[in-house]
Design a protein around this nucleic acid. Structure first.
Lengths: 258, 258
DNA sequence: GAGTGGTCTAGACCACACT
DNA sequence: GTGTGGTCTAGACCACTCC
């Protein structure tokens, strides 16, 4: 580790004046360095990162220290370890489950039918104050709004409204969304270099509005699950806002508590 | 480790015929042994377990192996590590947050008022088929049903219905529930020796029924969040079934996706 | 067989809490 | 000071994948 400070090194007073503890374990520093390389695209999604021994040599630390750093990156789903092969940059493209963040599952008695998508709208507009605030933008900044339906077994179940920062997603059109095979987040990752890392969701029960009810094939006022998602990329920077309306007649939102 | 098999030890054919891989890392075996002691109550909730060095000596393995076992137990919230003090058996009694499993949070504009509880009912009955199935009981086995309301800032927000295996919770009465200060799971833990480890929840949007609406102070048909929880103890044994109805006018169900 | 991640060990030292 | 968990190291061997 040439650049990083050893844990016990003295710091000048100016550094100590800065906020936060002027100390972090070596493996945390290594983790931060690897994360920086991931963010900078030094290794592309799906590719292998250097082996633990290589990284240990690069950063001048022991393999065990690199291992602990990678362990944490793996539990945060930034990388995936595969014994005998290497450690790979996580991707939304080659995942076992289609939608990593979608917690909606069919009731046990339902047949898991095929999933279809229909993009209703994709337009550019100026960010309303609330959207701007949640995306860390200024009100009036360009944003892209996308509206789409998800069908399970031929029936509409999810109505999604998305807001994306216009600057990050230049050139996004309804056509590109429709043509792309695979999860939307995989397209964002490969075409726009925006990697969805984690998300926060707020779930509520709401009544179907006059406008939304026919799209989901429910009666006006029918109870729907409202799922507001704020999706973050590296450094907890928000890059997507999403409001989903779920018809939970034959599906439910599944969650595990630990 | 006297009893546990070394990772590479040969097994006779009968053992190989049994389902599952006939191998687990040493630290997993240690983890299982510690878990067994936790389950058996060798150390009570809130108490410290032996130090890593002591456990290493007891099981005849290195401290690092014990450490890895405890690390996993800590991430599963079975124990809590405190630097300089020791490792402690997790408990619902002395927690920073009142309700570890309750994901309901007030809207940002709401003042977080005091939480009050009101127990409406606590009766013994025979398990309906569905309840029995989910609790791994036989239909007709004795169960205890509890109904209660949670108030936030004086207003009813959560209506809970619980089903508990009658054999595990002998002597549970509405009075004991009302008199107890602290989370219900803490009472279960200290009075009945039943430790809630993790849970699965199914969330849906439903319309308020004629019977439930007045309890929550909403109009009939108003959209409510239905939260079905199945709570598990050691060995993933189900020990509680719970159906909550949440009024999400001023609160929401919060979730983090990774 | 070579290379990768996974496990296990033994020992050193650090940070923290109690006494 | 003593004891606890937390970090870091160096080396050995195992399990898996691919050539």
């Amino acid at each position: 580790m040439a650049a990083a400070l050893p844990p016990t090194s003295a710091l000048d007073d100016a550094a100590l004046d800065a906020a936060g503890p002027a100390f972090s374990p070596l493996y945390q520093q290594i983790k931060a360095l690897i994360t920086r390389s991931l963010q900078a695209g030094e290794w592309r999604p799906g590719e292998a990162i250097p082996s633990e021994m290589d990284l240990a040599a690069r950063y001048k630390v022991s393999q065990g220290t690199v291992r602990k750093a990678i362990d944490e990156l793996a539990t945060e789903n930034l990388v995936v370890r595969r014994q005998g092969k290497g450690t790979f940059v996580a991707t939304h493209a080659e995942e076992q489950v289609q939608y990593r963040f979608l917690r909606l599952v069919p009731e046990p008695d339902q047949k898991p039918g095929p999933v279809e998508r229909r993009f209703i709208d994709c337009k550019r507009l100026r960010a309303p104050a609330e959207v701007a605030r949640l995306l860390d933008l200024k009100a009036g900044d360009p944003v892209i709004q996308v509206r789409r339906l998800l069908f399970f077994g031929g029936r509409p179940v999810v109505l999604d409204d998305l807001w994306l920062p216009g600057l990050l997603f230049k050139g996004l059109t309804a056509e590109r969304l429709s043509d792309y095979r695979g999860p939307m987040y995989a397209l964002f990752e490969t075409e726009f270099g925006v990697r969805m890392i984690r998300a926060e969701e707020k779930v509520r029960a709401v009544a179907a509005s006059t406008a939304d009810a026919p799209l989901l094939g429910v009666t006006e006022g029918a109870p729907l699950l409202s799922v507001e998602r704020r999706t973050l990329t590296y450094g907890d920077k928000p890059v997507e806002l999403r409001r989903g309306l779920y018809d939970t007649s034959n599906h439910h939102y599944r969650n595990e508590l630990n």
